[in-house]
Amino acid sequence: MAEFLAYLIAGLATGAIYALAAIGFTLVWQTSQTINFAQGEFVMLPAILILAAVKLFGLPVWLAVIAGIAAFIALFGWGFKLVIVDPMIRHGVLPLAIATMALSIIMKEGAKDGFTAEAQRFPSLVPQETVSLLGISISLQHVAIIIVACLAIGALQWFVTQTKTGRQMQASAQNPNVALILGIPVAQMVMLTFLINAALAALASILISPIYLAKFSNGEVIGLFAFIAAIVGGFNQVRGALAGGLLVGVIDSLAAAYISTSYRLAVPLVLLVAIILVKPEGLFGRKEERGV
């Protein structure tokens, strides 16, 4: 039992990161009805920018974290919407989805060529120690990831459902034309959504990079698992992304432990196929209909 609990906690920690990234998929989906295929790279890049600020500009770590996150949100929140989403969405969702694929490659190769192809150590906010509870050793880093990610997602959920701005965001996502008639500044709400997505990705990057090490290729795995998590949980619901992320993280951990490391990627994919067959809108998603 103790062993199972240890795998469960490790899986929840990884799943919390997938959830943060998966929320990005749902936010972009709700505002643009498209999939951001660069979402994994959105989680990879903030850590690289922070390390670049330390190594190339000699900034202290705390200042580099602030500068890196600010630069990332400006470039990939504000800039992403203005430079990629706005011009491409006029031509339909497919060109936009393809544009995000191109962005993914550019971000990855840019990080590799502009910084380094090698993995880099990333400072951890929490010591690499363990605490003993109920006979199992629990990593403080894992506990911190679960708590911070859940707090962030909880705060987002509260903001979206309990504040006026949050409700305006929801209204803009659900029906932008009606929202506009009601006097909601839809363009600002959409921009706010992209800024929140960038901030959550930066948070995920800071939490996971001490464990995975900062590397240009980190986005591949995170992006894939977050995508699966978003579909499993429900692409149009924040709480679905949370549930999907945690579920995929736990399944990944248990698969590595009890099946095989070689097949750990296959198991969440099997789950994905099962969900698509049985409940295509996802565990917590709502059914959507589109006119063609």
Binding site: E3, Y7, A10, Y212, V221, D252, A256, A257, T261
Partner: peptide, 20 residues
């Protein structure tokens, strides 16, 4: 006898196996 993958990022499950 624990097998891992090239490029693997998450070793938490492997570390738990080692401990157990």
């Amino acid at each position: 006898d624990i097998s891992t993958e090239q490029g693997q990022a998450d070793f938490a499950a492997d570390a738990i196996k080692i401990k157990n």
